[in-house]
Design a protein around this nucleic acid. Structure first.
Lengths: 350, 350
DNA sequence: GGCAATTTTGCAATGGTTTGCAATTCCTGC
DNA sequence: GCAGGAATTGCAAACCATTGCAAAATTGCC
C-alpha cells in the first residue's frame, strides 16, 4: 500500500536535537526542554505537541550536553580491582552477586553503572593516569569493592573525594566511607560453630594478605583461643581466591598435614574447592571433615553437600553501598555501615 | 616545616578547567587543549608548561564536554538482559566470565563499559523508554548478551542501529551482527561423546525456550538420530538456569524417570547441579551416570568430578564481540563471527 | 474595556572542550 | 634587512541542553 520510500534508508542519520523540534514547532528551545522535562511551566497543549514530535523523530536527549550543563552524570563507577593479581580473572561468583545487587540498586535510583577492573588511580600502559572519574564528570560517585593489599592509595584517593564508598572490613578501614561485614566476628562465628560440633583440629583456608581474609583469620584465632585451644601456624593455609590454584594448594596441604576434622574456609569458593579436594582424597564431608564457607554465594545452597556459610547479605550490602554513596553525593552526612554476619547452617558442617 | 595551610581544605572545590590553565599561562584555550591532547602543533616547551600546571591543579578533562564536542563517548553499553525473568539474579558464572572478558577487551581498546540489566528498549516503571544509548550519546555501541525468548524487539532495535552486536546463536540470529557459538554443533558433540562412551540412555537438561539452549537440544537430538536412537520427549527436562530451581527439577526427574546413564546438560551450572542431585540420589558420576556440561566456566575445571564440557571460549568470544562492534562503529563492513565449540574431556563423562 | 495578576514563552548566557582557519611568530637563506 | 616558508598560536564557531530573568500572552474581575 505504501509507496516505496527509498530515502528512508538514509546514510548515518544524525540524531534529532531539541532545536530541530523547536524550529518545526515554532517555539523556543527552552520550551522544548521544559516540555520534555515535564516542567509545569509549559502549557499542557504545548507539551503534548512537543512530546508527539519528539516521539515521531525518535528524539533522545543528548546526555552529554545534559550532563555538561547539569554537572551531573547520573553515573556511578563500580570498581572491582583485580588488577593487583595481574590480569587475572575475577572468578569468584561473589563479584557477580555483588555486581547484580549494585546494578539493581543503582538502576532503581536512576543511575547508570560503569564497571571497571582498574582503580581510578591506576595508570595505563604508558604510565598516564586516566581522567579522574569524579573530576572529569564521568561519574558522580565511586564504589570500590575490596580494600586491596596496599591501602595507601585507596586512602589517598578517598581523602580527596567525599563521593567514594568502599566495600571492605570496618577494622581495616581508613578515613573513608565503608560498608562491610565484621569479618572478624564472622570468622569467629564460623569457627565456634565447628567447635560446637565437636571438631577439634581446624584448619583455616585463605590468604591473610587480603585485609578481609586476614580479619576472618583473626576471628578464627580468637575462637580457638577462647576455647583454650592452640593456634597452629601450619593449619593456616594461604589458599588463593582462584579455585583452580586453590585446589592444588589444598590438596598439597591435605597430603602433608596431620589429619584435621574441620575447615574454616575464607570464602565459599575455597570451601567448595576444599570439599572437592577432600572427596578426591577419600574423605567425606561432613563425616570426616566439617567445612564452613563465607559469603553465601548463590550456589552455596545447591552445592554438594549444601554449604554451611557466613552470609554477607550481598543484596543488602549492595543496597547499603548505593544508599551510603548517594547520601554522600547529596552532601548529607553519610555514615559507614556495618552489616552483621550471620551463620547459615546447612549440611557441610555436620 | 610547612606552615599550616588551612585554606587548602576548601569546601567543594570545583574541578579545574582548561580556561583556567589558559589564563594562568597566558595562552589560549586552544593551545591548552592541543597541548594536553599531545598535538604536534604545539611547541614542546609550551606543552610541558601546560602539562606541569595541569598536573599541579589536578586537572582532568571534562569528559562530558569532550564527548559532546567529539560526538563520541568512548563507552560501550553491555546488556545482560535478565529482566525477562523478572528481577531475577543473573546467577550463572558464565556472565561473570563474559563480563570479565568484555571489560578487558574494552579497556584495552580505550572504552568504558556501562553495564545494564535492562535492554535499551525496555521501559521503566512509568512506561517511558529510557533514552536510547546510541542516540543520546551515552554509548557508541551496544553489546547484548543473549537473544532472549522474544526476538522481535531485538530485531527491531538492531535494525535501527549498526552499532549493535549480539552474543547468541547463529542459527537463530536475525539481520544483526552476532558473535556466538554453533550451539547445535556443540550439543551434538557433547551427545556423541557420551554415546562414544557407550552411554545409551541420555537425558537433556535445559529449557528449550531459550534460543541457545534450544539449539543445543537440537544437537542432542541430531546425535541421537544419527546413532539410530529414539528421541524420548520425557528425557528432555526443562531445567532452569538457576541452580537452586534446577536442583528441584532434576531431583524430581531422577525420581520418576527410568534410569539413565548419561546427561547432556545445557550449561555447566546445570551439569554441576545435576551431579549434586545424582550424588544425593546415591548415584556415582561418572560411574552410574556420565555428565557433560556446556560453557566451560571457570569452576568447571575444579568441580568434583572435573566437568567434561563444551567450551565457548568465553575470553575469545568477548574479544570477538568487541572487535566486531568496534569495526561496525568505525563504519567498516563488520562481520558476524561464529566460534567453533570444542569438547573438553575431563572426568565427569567417564 | 482596562488593569493587574497569572500563565506561558523566549532571550541569552552558560557549561568545557574541540577544531577549521586566519594570524602571528620564528627561522632560513640571500 | 627582508622575502618566503614553516612552526605556533589564537579566534570564534560549533556541540546541545538548561535556566534565570524578562517579555508576551492570557485570564479574571470590576
Amino acid at each position: 500500500m505504501r509507496p516505496p520510500e527509498r530515502q528512508e534508508a538514509e546514510e548515518e542519520r544524525q540524531p534529532a536535537t531539541m532545536s530541530q523540534i523547536a524550529r518545526r514547532l515554532k517555539v523556543s528551545e527552552s520550551t522544548v526542554s521544559r516540555a520534555l522535562a515535564g516542567s509545569p511551566l509549559v502549557k499542557a497543549e504545548t507539551r503534548e505537541k512537543v512530546e508527539a514530535l519528539a516521539r515521531e523523530l525518535g528524539f533522545s536527549v543528548n546526555l552529554n550536553a545534559q550532563r555538561l550543563k547539569r554537572r551531573r552524570s547520573q553515573t556511578i563507577e563500580v570498581v572491582i580491582p583485580v588488577e593487583e593479581y595481574g590480569r587475572q580473572h575475577m572468578s569468584d561468583p561473589f563479584f557477580l552477586d555483588m555486581i547484580g545487587a549494585l546494578a539493581d540498586a543503582l538502576t532503581d535510583a536512576g543511575y547508570d553503572m560503569l564497571l571497571s577492573k582498574r582503580t581510578p588511580w591506576a595508570v595505563d600502559a604508558e604510565g598516564r593516569p586516566r581522567p579522574n572519574p569524579l573530576l572529569s564528570g564521568r561519574a558522580d560517585g565511586v564504589i570500590i569493592i575490596g580494600q586491596g593489599r596496599d591501602q595507601s592509595q585507596l586512602r589517598a584517593f578517598a581523602a580527596q573525594h567525599r563521593q567514594v564508598v568502599v566495600w571492605g572490613d570496618p577494622e581495616v578501614a581508613g578515613d573513608y566511607l565503608l560498608v562491610g561485614v565484621d569479618n572478624r566476628a564472622g570468622g569467629r562465628t564460623a569457627t565456634e560453630h565447628l567447635l560446637s560440633r565437636s571438631r577439634r583440629r581446624l584448619a583455616f583456608l585463605g590468604d591473610p594478605k587480603e585485609p578481609e581474609i586476614s580479619q576472618r583469620c583473626e576471628g578464627y584465632k580468637d575462637a580457638l583461643r577462647a576455647a583454650g585451644m592452640p593456634v597452629e601456624a601450619d593449619l593456616i593455609v594461604p589458599a588463593r581466591f582462584d579455585a583452580v590454584y586453590a585446589l592444588e594448594t589444598i590438596t598439597a596441604f591435605l597430603g602433608k598435614a596431620d589429619p584435621i576434622d574441620g575447615i574454616v574456609a575464607a570464602t565459599d569458593v575455597i570451601a567448595m574447592t576444599a570439599i572437592t579436594a577432600l572427596q578426591q582424597a577419600g574423605l567425606s564431608v561432613p563425616g570426616d571433615v566439617a567445612v564452613t564457607g563465607y559469603d553465601d554465594i548463590h550456589s552455596a545452597r545447591s552445592a554438594s553437600p549444601p554449604l554451611t556459610t557466613i552470609t554477607q547479605r550481598i543484596a543488602e550490602g549492595g543496597q547499603a553501598l548505593v544508599a551510603t554513596l548517594l547520601g554522600a553525593i547529596e552532601g548529607g552526612p553519610a555514615r559507614s555501615r556495618v552489616i552483621e554476619p550471620e551463620l547459615i547452617v546447612r549440611v557441610s558442617s555436620g
